[in-house]
Amino acid sequence: MSGSTDDKLRLATVWLGGCSGCHMSFLDLDEKLFGLAERVDVVFGPLTDVKVFPEDVDLTLVEGAVANEDNLELAHQLRANSRVVVSFGDCAVTGNVTSLRNRLGEPDELLQRVYGDAPDLAGQVPRSVVPALLPTVQPLHEVIPIDVYLPGCPPSAERIGRALELLLDALEAGEGLPDLTGRGPDDLRFG
């Protein structure tokens, strides 16, 4: 978004097993994105062309549940390199829609059902090239420790904006993390 300067906080956003709706909602910050760009460098995410999760990230928003081996590996990488990790949106927080497949059986069974039995795919089941599915989809906090939860499907742009402001204020001031849960029902809601 902008050139790196030393006094800006480093922000990453990550897209695991989700629909990218949380990122869309993030983009709905619209003109507030300019204000955000004054305060942070976006160093990783679907909006950048960076392939490897960088070091020394201050704040990482993680959208999506942990559904496959790539998700899992990236989750561990981002945890190891982030000061504050936000479980961002219902898929990250609860598994949400992504986890609906947990009721449909083992990954092989699932792949056969979705791809193998599909009439127009000639029985092609993706078992290579794409990352292998984990036995079950898990919420992010089952895999790595989480600092802040921001539920919603997706969280509204207003909710994201308020949360980011509080988090960035705290990080810039070197204070403890704010409690996002104490701020009324609008700032905390599944669905």
Partner: peptide
Amino acid sequence: EEVAHEPA
């Protein structure tokens, strides 16, 4: 180990 899932 928990999540081992071998691609076929």
